[in-house]
Design a binder for these strands. Sequence first.
DNA 1: ATTAGGCGATTTTTT
DNA 2: ATCGCCTAAT
Length: 742
Amino acid sequence: MSYLSELNPKQIEAVKAVEGPVMVVAGPGSGKTRVLTYRIAHLIQIGVPAYRILALTFTNKAASEMKERIVKIVGEKSRQLWMGTFHSVFARILRVECELLGFGRNFTIYDTADSLGLIKNIMNSLGVPQQQYNPQAIRSRISGAKNQMIGPTEYAAQALDLFAEKTGRVYAEYDRRLRQHNAMDFDDLLLKPIELFQRHKKTLEKYRDLFRFVLIDEYQDTNRTQYVLIKTIAEKYRNICVVGDDAQSIYAFRGADIRNILDFQNDYSDLKTIRLEQNYRSTKTILAAADHLIKHNQDQISKSLWTENPEGETITLLSCDDDRDEGNRIVARVFDESRRLKIDLKDFAIMYRTNAQSRSLEDALRKNSIPYIIVGGIEFYQRKEVKDALAYLRIVVNPQDGESFLRIANYPVRGLGAASLERLQAFAAERNLSLLSAAGKANEIDGLSQRAKVSFLQLFDFFTKYEKLKREISLTELSRSMIEETGMLALLKDEATAESLERWQNVQELLSALSEFAAQRDDATLEAFLQDVSLVSAVDNLDPNRNAVTLMTLHSAKGLEYPVVFITGLEEGLLPLYNSSLDRKEIEEERRLFYVGITRAMTKLYLSTARMRFRYGETAYQSPSRFLEEIPDELTDELVVRTKRLFKTRADERSGKFAFDRGASEFSPKAAAFHSDPEPDYESDIDALELLKIGKLVEHSDFGQGKIIGLSGEGDSMKAVVDFDSVGRKNLMLKYARLKVL
DNA sequence: ATTAGGCGATTTTTT
DNA sequence: ATCGCCTAAT
């Protein structure tokens, strides 16, 4: 077994302990993924059929990457592994088994936005005012209840206040409607399998027997339903291996339950615990900072992380004036460090607590023509036009899907407003019909205008036609012709604004994605495509080959690593983020989130704060995060900038005045050690780059004064066309030209 | 009575 | 950028 030579003794132990319950407590960067990969490869190598192994990961990307590596080690037979996120694996099982629960195999998966829409609709029909009862809050309460396996009846019985009482009523109706729509929300994908296994012992036996080996990654972020689910499944063989790190538990808001770790220890008396404490990722400095920080948490399993990696550089603090300044200074550091460390843009990650923070960072990157990719944020599949197109496709697959029907009933505009849809819904409820079939009986609905009747009937015919065509033409043809016929493409094209054309593009992109999907898989169905689309996570789309700076939330950063990491917005109220209550547990989760961020960094870590920040539509004064005090001073440096730095001119260099008179990046005394590192003769010029605009007057040391009349290129290859008073037009590489802005 | 379109407020983190 | 509310238009 040659691969064992690549592992340390603890890792080998974790790979080889395949029988019985095992818990691997794996610190950040301790080679956890490697252990999981080799463990599965090892299982296959000793003769376990791949299809008898269930491996649950946190993202689909992690699953497919791991699978590829396993295929490389032990060959094609490992393709049959059951591997993916909880949600995708159990969605797959439900597709086969859900008829036992009264669902059709073509059920639709509702994402958070769909489920919120349904809840709002229900609140309207139950007469629960949305002003008094926040639909979001109701949705998250229902989701919370589901994650703890509390059903609507039980929830209503426990309701103590008015809010809970209303939530209970909405919850009951919500469940009913999901069933009517033949739809499941994210929580159902975990809850329904439990129900299935409870009610159908034969099915339970089938899966218990199938999954002889069960592995779970990121165990600290599993919730109660996930815990019950795997415990149920693994009961027969008890070959269950969980891998996780309590210090990286950051999903309590989603129902992740730390009890899952403690209970696991209680559930299995013969549990073998293996600790992976050697870190292969970060410098000693970064690891020490993380360690000091996390020691401030009371709730934790104590562990002592260590590394053979070098001491490394100190962590650099950037104290910025405001969010704009923060963006600019980070961009400047990206330029400097890419030069100094000779690394690519893809080696940089900028992290933040809230998605809203990405804006000022994006502005700075865009202005300086630095390519970047943003993880999450406004996701492709969340865009209105994409969701609209998807809704049409969803209805063809599942004609009962009322939520999708309501979404597109009046898009493109067909004269079906709120009142008409209200009538349709009432009629459908009365006769126990789906909205689509009710639309087919529009003539029987009282009080509907003639126009609305015609529209409903046309809509019904439209879907009837495509339901039929579905069996006759290819996936690609069907979707293309259908979306074409809705008229939404023409509508977007005719509008001809930059925005509408972008939307048009997005719809086209969706259709291409579908074609590609159809071409790639021989078993490709519209159902499968729609399921994939519902369950993609933000990081799944991260392309490691693109050379661009990565921007993401601290949550998305879990499991990733980068040579240089910037963690931004280290301010009270932002990290830790304040909401209504901030008790110890919440602070500790925020601290873990920061911990996750720090431990993503391999060689260099930057932490930034802004004195003022634009939030909720106004500029607020911010104070530094309490977490900064928890990192020992000797591990950090402060990079001070006095004023905006301009390009040096030769004259400045000669006089040596530049650094003091005009301000520059300058290190505080304790940063001297860092500054004395061998630095390439490269200047940090980015602050000035953003000042460079067409029309600006500039000075060149040889050509004198001139005016910028054109700018092109990006990064190091950025050029400017300058009209000089003395010599006329010149095309200059900014990197060498050393222009001074006047 | 309905619907269409404009304007203003609003974002914690996510499968 | 999206959602909800308001007013003008049909």
